[in-house]
Design a protein around this nucleic acid. Structure first.
Lengths: 335, 335
DNA sequence: CTGAAAGCGCTTACAG
DNA sequence: CTGAAAGCGCTTACAG
């Protein structure tokens, strides 16, 4: 075992004071070049690293940021975390991960814990339940404690903090319009997340493009069985020519039902989905999808947070950013 | 802003010493019930929480564990993290996440950083590159610094630490035997990870079940184009009756090529894959797969680490654990 | 140029 | 039962 060496031990070995060692290692101009060199040499020899906990206590910083993720199995959020970790690393910050599992109570526990100063700032995508119950006190509380907070992805709540989101509404509006220019009239939408903020926005985008109520064909339910029924109706009875899917579950449901009902994609039915590149590309036929750039969202979120932490934008109005999506054409929208 | 209140401030408000406050809050028997109550009341009123950084400095603990994840977009690892986070939370530990992106250099950087005492212990699944280059010095170094290390999932390296893995070899052996009992003779395997430890083990399981060299039909390549060619050969020329896939990419490749070559699953071809439940269930037809219980792996990993950290098993031989997989039958192996 | 001292916020052995 | 003191490992204003 190489026991960790401290400043004090280093000082004793060198026959100088602790202050001198510390200053030397920080390249203080107060220290003579000769001493500085001696100190650094020994420090290197013993592989000295300052104890981060002590440094943090001194500086009243924790050197870490907290990230609350609603659901890590969702590759979107996994990739956001990827971006967060990468950018945090550049800023020399450690990332403490918390998973709310879409539960309000867990989110409250986490927020409560974070008020005690584990982290210098927090990135949050609020949980489904939190959105549904509109219970935001724990978030206000965080802000009250002067802990910088940045909301990512799930941002449509009334909290005066920096936010970084996706242009959910536009994404399906653009997709719908694109199908229209190709001469497709009967366009449906399938969704298992119509009750969530992002789901609502995506469906709104679809509505915006169509305009007339009578043109809407919407299959939505968070219950698989109901969604299946409604989607079946969309494909078989309404005979839509294209379906936009707002999420993974509805996308797979459409593929499944098309297969069961012998509806050929893309010949009889065009499909555009929301899923990650890997799955989209590998499906048969491959499915056109809305790309969301989750890594960029993570990176931007850290940037916003770091700016707040370093007070570069203190007191200023909250910033709202949007990362644009991109429609990727694969086989399911071949004409 | 509610500024965080400290012990000192609390003490001043109560006209007692800092020690008294501290002891009272820790239910020390030294303190009179009356004082204890006064202290607790005020502490509650001000929502006092001990500064974790100070507590850590005092106790020479960081109260955190580090987790190195090779690839967070892989739902397997995402779910391991889920288990880790849940169990860590129960032990009151914070989880600092590092993503190596399958790169040796990044893994080395992380390990280097961790020697400075950010964490009380580390959970590692080593990166692909690390496995390939068999460059483990940074891991030995961690152990030298007396930082408890637990390897998870990717464990076949010669390092005397606790390990928690999956019964990769057995999983495909059992799957192969099962197909054999159903009267299937010509069984192939497709793999894009044959060069990695887990891939090797899975293929070994397949070989174990078949025994005769001439019965092996193996399509393996980490390059998509080559894998496609070889798999095509397996399905079209060799006309195997079943394919076992060792990973996501090869699974999707088999589905794709079956579709392109109008080979009907499961009628003409049985398929068993390695992928996560969500995708497996939603594919058309749904695909039988090997379930791996990543959350349990995460939980067990934390348990092992906590035991080491608390020295409950100090000096003892490293522990090796395995989480058994389970074959889930869905449509792709219907008979 | 070097070092003693104070202090970050806590805990705890010790004295009274 | 209460408090002063030492100390965890560091940084930095200040004195010499």
């Amino acid at each position: 075992m190489k026991n960790k060496i401290t400043l004090k031990e280093l000082a004793k070995l060198l026959n100088v004071s602790v202050s001198t060692v510390s200053k030397a290692l920080h390249d203080s101009p107060e220290i003579s070049p000769k001493t500085a060199e001696r100190v650094k040499e020994l420090a290197k020899l013993h592989n000295y690293r300052p104890n981060p906990v002590a440094v943090n206590l001194k500086s009243s910083k924790s050197g870490t940021i907290g990230v609350i993720i609603p659901n890590i199995s969702n590759t979107f959020f996994a990739n956001v975390l990827l971006g967060i970790e990468a950018r945090a690393q550049k800023s020399g910050l450690q990332v403490i991960t918390y998973i709310s599992n879409e539960k309000l109570e867990r989110e409250q526990q986490i927020a409560e814990m974070l008020t005690s100063g584990f982290v210098d700032g927090v990135l949050i995508a609020i949980s489904e339940e939190t959105q549904r119950k509109k219970e935001y006190d724990h978030l206000f509380n965080l802000v009250d404690y002067d802990i910088p907070v940045v909301l990512y992805d799930r941002i449509n709540i009334d909290l005066a903090v920096d936010k970084i989101g996706v242009d959910d509404e536009q994404s399906l509006e653009i997709a719908t319009r694109l199908l229209q220019t190709k001469g497709i009239k009967k366009i449906g939408v399938a969704s298992s997340i119509h009750h969530l903020g992002v789901g609502k926005l995506r469906i709104t985008g679809y509505r915006n493009a169509l305009k007339n109520e009578e043109d809407f064909y919407i299959a939505n339910s968070s219950k698989p069985d109901t969604l299946r029924e409604k989607t079946q109706q969309l494909l078989v009875e309404d005979k839509v020519e294209a379906v936009l899917c707002t999420d993974f579950v509805s996308t797979m449901m459409v593929y499944r039902l098309a297969y069961e009902n012998k509806i050929s994609i893309p010949r009889d039915l065009k499909v555009i989905g929301f899923l990650n590149a890997d799955v989209a590309r590998f499906l048969t036929p491959s499915i056109s999808y809305v790309e969301q750039f989750p890594e960029e969202i993570g990176e931007e979120a850290v940037d916003l947070l770091v700016n707040r932490i370093e007070n570069r934008i203190a007191g200023k109005q909250p910033i709202n950013k949007t990362i644009n999506t991109k429609l990727i054409h694969l086989e399911s929208t071949d004409f």
